[in-house]
Computed example of a mutant assay.
Amino acid sequence: MSEKNKGIFYIILAALCFSLMSLFVRLSGDIPSMQKSFFRNLVALIFSLFILWKEKIPFHAGKGNTIYLILRAAFGTLGLFCNFYAIDHLALSDANMLNKLSPFFAIIFSYFLLKEKVAPYQLICVITAFIGTLFILRPGFGNLVTFPALIGLLGGLGAGIAYTMVRVLSGQGVKGPFIVFFFSAFSCIVTLPFFIFNYTPMKPWQLGFLLLAGLAASGGQFSITAAYSHAPAKEISVYDYTQIIFSSLWGILFLGELPNWMSVTGYVIIFGASLTMFLKRQKEAQKREN
């Protein structure tokens, strides 16, 4: 199997894991998002600690990187809270598609924070993606879906900033497992007071689903790290959108959800913008190689 095909395999595996995480979070029932986040990150924290110990990765990020770790953790935690809220209040596929706007937010914040140039086609794709978002948000007076959808959009924004910080940290040589560990530990510390003082009693099956969500999320995080270690984002990132297919399937099979035509139109527009950007990057890479 070529390195690119390995990357594609791992990114589709990550998409499957993250879609299962969303399903398990929803199936865990009426529990505060903070409590769900605590268990999701607790499992990821244990996994990342094991990887750090096994691979003998040092527990430090290097000089000048702490601020980027904190920003990655803070905005990643915000994105996670918003994503879990959206999962509980929207169709599973809607919530996941709004979270998949993070690459477009990453382009915007890379321009402002990293001073990276934005090509005209990237700007057009970003604008097109946000037009697609309007079909999912369905803004209008008296529309109950709007507020949860806006929270889901905020989750995508938080994830976009977090991924921008991951790019900075990776460029500085910070190891992926340490970034996952710092983020998981930060999120657990932030949610711990809510967990202690606003704890909602859980039945064994609810705890089971939350632990499964944590396992699925850990599998997703390490799979996506493996994917980008085998192939660059410009070659495989578009396959990450298979998560929407998986989420739609779980929604139909387990939750009785069927996306309406406006949501599907939004999915097609956003995916089309992502596919255009993907193909354009590949074309530019081929020109450079020639």
Rank of each mutant, 00 (worst) to 15 (best):
L207F: 08
A226R: 06
I124V: 14
A213P: 02
L42G: 12
P120G: 15
Q286Y: 11
A285D: 13
N290H: 11
L212P: 00
I31D: 00
P148I: 00
G160M: 05
V168S: 06
S33F: 02
S102Q: 09
I107A: 11
L144A: 15
G132M: 07
L16V: 14
G140K: 13
H230P: 08
A86D: 01
L49N: 10
L134W: 10
L69Y: 10
Y267F: 15
A227M: 03
M97V: 08
T191M: 08
P177F: 03
L253M: 11
R167I: 07
A14I: 03
V190W: 05
Q122Y: 11
T265F: 05
P120Q: 15
V168H: 14
Y10A: 11
L90W: 01
K54N: 09
L78P: 03
V166K: 04
M277H: 14
N96S: 10
G155S: 03
R281C: 06
V126W: 11
P259V: 07
L211N: 02
N198Y: 06
S28E: 00
V166G: 02
K115W: 08
T191W: 06
K280W: 12
A273S: 14
C82H: 01
G140I: 12
N290C: 10
F18Q: 04
L101M: 15
K56R: 15
Q122T: 15
P120R: 15
A86Y: 00
I124S: 11
L71E: 09
A119M: 13
F183K: 08
S93C: 09
L27Q: 02
F112M: 09
G156T: 01
H60M: 11
L279N: 12
R72I: 13
L134V: 12
I51Y: 05
V126M: 10
A86T: 00
L255W: 03
L16P: 06
G256Y: 06
S28W: 00
Y85L: 06
A231Y: 08
E116R: 09
C188Q: 07
S19Q: 06
N5E: 13
A73Q: 12
F186H: 09
L49V: 10
M1L: 13
M21R: 03
N99Y: 07
G64D: 12
L150C: 04
A273N: 10
A231R: 09
L98S: 02
K100L: 14
I196L: 08
T133E: 15
A95S: 12
T77M: 14
G219W: 01
G62R: 11
I131C: 13
R288M: 10
T128I: 13
F183H: 11
Q172W: 09
G214W: 00
L23M: 10
C17A: 13
F197G: 06
L52C: 14
S263G: 09
C188Y: 06
Y241C: 02
I124M: 12
S102Y: 14
S263K: 02
I245Y: 07
Y111F: 14
L134S: 08
K280D: 12
T128S: 12
C17Q: 05
N65L: 10
V264F: 08
L27D: 01
F47H: 03
H230S: 07
L137Y: 04
L49C: 13
S37H: 11
A285K: 12
I11R: 02
A285H: 12
T265D: 03
E257H: 10
G272A: 15
T191N: 07
A216I: 01
L211A: 07
E289R: 12
I124A: 14
K54Q: 13
N290P: 07
S93T: 13
P259S: 05
D240I: 06
T146F: 15
